[in-house]
Design a protein around this nucleic acid. Structure first.
Length: 431
RNA sequence: UCCGAAAUAGCUCAGCGGUAGAGCGGGUGGCUGUUAACCACUAGGUCGGGGGUUCGAAUCCCUCUUUCGGAGCCA
């Protein structure tokens, strides 16, 4: 007998097959028993009829509890009541383990309880759907970059020095070398990679010790940084747009069942796959002030400002050319206005907020050194970074995607904590 | 760090000064098409900790703890 996965049942209509998995739900009605079976690839209603199974096996199956593990044999057929769905006529049930009383019931639960039981919560259908989408987006990003001549170049997670102020860094003792820190961005290391490989990206966990307490923040999250030699500001945004639109199309193509489980507004996602809007920071501020925002002319966008900007927009919006005071030291100055830098943020529609930060990088040694002195940075720690501007410096640009924020938007869920298997937040590190 | 809210059965909540409640989950039984199945019966509680007011506190007051939501910071 052939072992198959739930996602493939439609190819085995009428043939007896074997599946291995767990009980999502079970109902019985006299001589009939319905097992909602899941195996990681999907779920399948399986029906047992007492005379077919025999008294002993039927009674054993009837005792199955939520999340019990089992191996079932049966014949796939079309669902009697739901068009386009399949079900399994059970011929044999082998119980692997009768699960103890499962903590997560079929009724509602609060977030605290669910997060404490996160190791079990990930089995439920919505969490399963989000994790499927996470997987799909991960590979879509890698695929797009690989097809556009980017090479994977992994940045270190343990780093010797602070990149932007030590208050937001987790530190630890590193043998006899003093303090080491968990990386909050691989970007500076990525800039070294382009001088070897031309175009590079990394993808890994980064850490921010900010005492943030919002639905958009995690202390440990995954970031994809990309960096490309000889790419300037406008082309940088074109790459970002191409990547995000590719991700949208891939998710729509591969994850429709998952989007439906999550009750995602699929049309809204479709509409986002169109040319993105572009605004300068100045234009954005004027637009917001005309609508009552109290944002300063050289100020950063608040959460309410981001929401107001994207209200009524189907597509994400690039905000470019920021005042240099509120952006990082490594961003290149706008040749048309030395008060501005060639940076861009990308703000997702539907109120999901910032998902990308990017910029053209300063490639002139002396200008960069001047900016670092202005910021009172420890120059000797960054000598390697300055070296890049001495040995074959080129114009270059890059950007970083907050992976979980992108998943939040694609999935249309409310809180970023559901997009990662084990969220790390200011008041939570278990499990 | 600041502002706001909450804590009662395993879970979600109601009760807001006078004998501790419901739904789900658990247990037992019933049902040949169920869809968070249904029906009947059943077990299950130091009302977050401490202190106070009162004849009487889950309920009012003080305090501590924990959590949640939002702001800021950022992706």
């Amino acid at each position: 007998m052939k072992d198959i996965f739930v996602k493939d049942v439609k190819e085995y209509i009428g043939q007896e097959v074997r599946l291995k998995g767990w009980v999502r739900n079970i109902r019985h009605s006299g001589k009939l028993l319905f097992i909602i079976f899941r195996d990681g690839t999907g779920e399948l209603q399986s029906v047992a009829f007492k005379p077919d199974l025999g008294d002993e096996m039927f009674e054993a199956a009837k005792k199955l509890t939520l999340e019990s593990s089992l191996i079932i044999c049966g014949t796939p057929k079309t669902h009697q009541k739901i068009e386009g769905a399949f079900e399994l006529s059970i011929t044999k049930v082998d119980v692997v383990q009768y699960a103890e009383e499962y903590p997560i019931s079929k009724k509602d639960h609060g977030p605290d309880f669910l997060l404490t039981n996160r190791h079990l919560w990930i089995r439920s259908s919505k969490q399963w759907a989000i994790l499927q989408i996470r997987h799909t987006i991960y590979y879509a990003i890698c695929e797009y970059l690989n097809n556009n001549n980017f090479y994977r170049f992994d940045s270190p997670i343990l780093t010797p020095n602070a990149c932007e102020g030590t208050t937001t860094l987790f530190d630890l003792d590193y043998f006899d070398e003093g303090k080491a820190y968990l990386s909050q961005s691989g970007q500076l290391y990525l800039e070294t990679g382009i001088m070897s490989l031309g175009r590079v990206y990394d993808f890994g966990p980064v850490f921010r010790a900010e005492r943030s307490k919002t639905r958009k923040h995690l202390t440990e999250f995954w970031m994809m940084d990309a960096e490309a030699a000889f790419v300037e500001h406008d082309e940088n945004m074109e790459i970002q747009e191409g990547l995000i639109r590719y991700v949208i199309r891939t998710v729509l193509e591969k994850c429709l069942p998952e989007l439906n489980i999550l009750e995602r507004d699929i049309e809204a996602l479709r509409r986002a796959d169109a040319p993105f809007k572009r605004m300068t920071h100045r234009e954005a501020v004027d637009y917001l002030r005309a609508r009552g925002s109290e944002i300063e002319h050289n100020g950063d966008l608040g959460a309410a400002d981001e929401a107001m900007l994207t209200e009524g927009s189907d597509v994400p919006i690039f905000i470019e050319k920021w005042p240099k005071e509120i952006k990082a030291f490594y961003m290149k100055r706008d040749p048309e206005n030395p008060e501005l830098v060639l940076g861009n943020d990308l703000i997702a529609p539907e109120g999901f907020g910032e998902i990308i930060g990017g910029s053209q990088r300063e490639d002139d040694h002396d200008v960069l050194l001047g900016r670092m002195i202005d910021e009172k940075m420890p120059i000797e720690s960054y000598q390697w970074f300055l070296d890049l501007r001495k040995y074959g410096s080129v114009p270059h640009s890059g950007f970083g995607i907050g992976f979980e924020r992108l998943i939040t938007w694609m999935s249309g869920i409310r809180h970023i904590r559901e997009t990662i298997p084990f969220p790390r937040m200011i008041y939570r590190i278990y499990p």
